[in-house]
Design a protein around this nucleic acid. Structure first.
Lengths: 218, 218, 218, 218
DNA sequence: CATGAATGAGACTTCATTCAT
DNA sequence: CATGAATGAAGTCTCATTCAT
């Protein structure tokens, strides 16, 4: 067991079964992040959780089960934190920019969670759909506010999400610095029809990136 | 062997060794496209190529080797064809739009090649870099022509490529129709700073999509 | 727990420990009957008994222990009931025919018990020996009465028992109807030396098949 | 590898693949005979055949596949040998008695093959059906010859086969001596309606039990 | 070159059983 | 007594890879 992951931390005062389950989930995050779903092995997850092979199956039916649960929890927690921190922002462009930048920074702060989000597309597509639904709310708002002039359909959502995830991946790979979040925000705002100058302003405005800790819900 | 794939076709008059190699590559395209790199098995590739598994290793060092070669060839051939068909276009926005739309349509016409391109990110990153270098030429041209106002750096390239591949994937999944190519072209042109009206014009202008056949080079 | 099995029924007014044990035995009957001894799992037995797997080992040393006990009780109860219902019959051929036919019908009425009897040969051979000892009494009587002319040794017993169990299995599989009991009775009586006409008469005489309920003894 | 089994012997001059396959089949006979189908493990079969685990799957799809093939070959070879040795016998009672006695003795001479035949009921029912079909020919002949007066239906066949296999099992367990074959022949002939004296005569007549070697066909 | 049998590591999964609570 | 989490051995099966022919 390499330290204590977020799930384990959250479960520290619960009964043993819950703690073991949490250790398995933290281990799964690490393994899925590093190897991807296909190459990840239940054995490796169990080893990292410091339990024997068979214990895994006491808690999860199979690899798919833990993968889905992990991906969902990761997405949910990040989304919830971002959302909670933006209740006071009304302008859709600002909301979008803020959410995107926070999303990327939070995910970078916990690189394994970031990779899980990126890779979950293959095995837990509902996670991306959930992220899209969060995004879509603000984009639709922007259309109503007259800020955006692009039709927000499934294809648009898909494309925009792929831009954000590409930026996240570049950050996680170390190919780019923290400016990536603003860069991709600016690019998306341009796509949405925000004039170049305004797009730059929204995307690069100083925001207070809350030093969110990953705080899981079980 | 299910018919004759592009590589096999190209090798039809060569000596046996070359033909076997080509059959293995066609088989690999099918298998990687269908199963992805991890889930693909050498045995399955060999079976589809109508050779025994040992023969595989006469021609390729391992699974990674054939994967890289296949992805590279696929990307190279598609890029070369697109490029060759655009020698007469000077306007960078027009070139980009044309290239993107043709790229997507060609890849859709040979869905397995399309999937290989998308999935190769994981196991043959140099393929994406090559595609990017093709794109970059036109984007840099656009900047020189004063059409684009975005700095064309590695991050920008990466993001734009992810948009195009997202559109291709949506097409291949059947989530969208042929309009996806123009849609994503328009979105990228907006990103690049082309005014909305002009972006729409470039992206949706009728072009003659050459009925390119996949024609491989060995 | 699917309803209430015979053992559970019998234990309904006893203290909890006894009831748990009975539930495990009823569950074991179901599982052994359905899956056979090898394929049966303690986990499955416990699940059906609505206890956790650890509880199993409070009551039984291992799988063999419950298997033996279940098989023994099943055989004992059926035999006792048949025997009790024949106190008024003196003729050995009639006794045999009656016992065989009732045995098969009772076991068919509770198919799981039937399968346990058949399959117990593999893991609880003493059960068959017990059934044989019941049979042997009547066959020896028949010899003394001059009805049977076959030496009643262990081999004979074994063969006759296999005939009866084959008939029971055919009934349980649904390969044959209720006439199987009389058919096999007739066949055995022929083996024992009863003239064909008499054998037929004994085997097919109407008897009142008591609607025995399975009533267990703990 | 404990010596050389019949299949291996037969394959001794064939190419390696055939020999390995034969070794696996001989090993499977041993393991199925000793443990039964359920308890038999592919690992154990491979170990006895002196090949590694994975080699098993080069030759057989799974445990069912080798079990079915082994059971079928065993039954076929024994039946063929018995049949070939009785071309000169016309009387059905004599044929039946001879076949039964030879069957038991041959199977006893290769105890593992005997156990496979007995146990194959559970996993390769077609084997028993095949044996029955051999038997049925002679029984039907007996009816036509006026020797037997019992209707030869599926249930009758099933019961008679169970008698013969019970005798074989008793022999294999060592519960009885060579007289078991004649004893069970006599019992079956009585079932079939042959008068007691004649049944004894047929069943105990001296026959020359060919010292058949198990000789397999691949 | 091509064959194809063999390998052996390793993946997934089940299960009888133990033991601290 | 009952719980139920944990164990670890064992089993099934796949697969990349090697090598003698």
């Amino acid at each position: 067991m390499s330290g204590e992951g977020p799930f384990t931390h959250q479960a520290r005062n619960q009964r043993k079964s819950v703690r073991t389950r949490a250790r398995l989930m933290d281990a799964a995050v690490e393994v899925f992040a590093r190897d991807g779903f296909e190459a990840a092995s239940v054995n490796e997850i169990a080893r990292r959780a410091d339990v024997v092979n068979g214990t895994f199956y006491v808690h999860f039916k199979d690899k798919d089960a833990i993968a889905a649960e992990v991906a969902f929890k990761v997405a949910y927690d990040i989304a919830r934190q971002i959302d909670g921190a933006m209740t006071h922002i009304d302008n859709a462009a600002e909301r979008f920019s803020c959410a995107t930048r926070q999303f990327i920074e939070i995910a970078c702060g916990q690189p394994q969670w970031g990779w899980v989000l990126i890779r979950s597309a293959g095995y837990a597509p509902e996670v991306h759909r959930q992220v899209e639904s969060y995004l879509r709310t603000d984009l639709a708002l922007g259309v109503r506010q007259g800020l955006f002039d692009l039709e927000i359909d499934a294809f648009t959502m898909d494309t925009i999400l792929s831009m954000i995830l590409a930026a996240l991946a570049a950050r996680l790979r170390g190919d780019t610095g923290p400016e990536a979040a603003s860069k991709v925000s600016e690019m998306v705002l341009r796509v949405l029809g925000v004039p170049a100058v305004a797009a730059k302003a929204f995307a690069w405005s100083p925001i207070e990136l809350q030093g969110f800790k990953i705080q899981t819900t079980l």
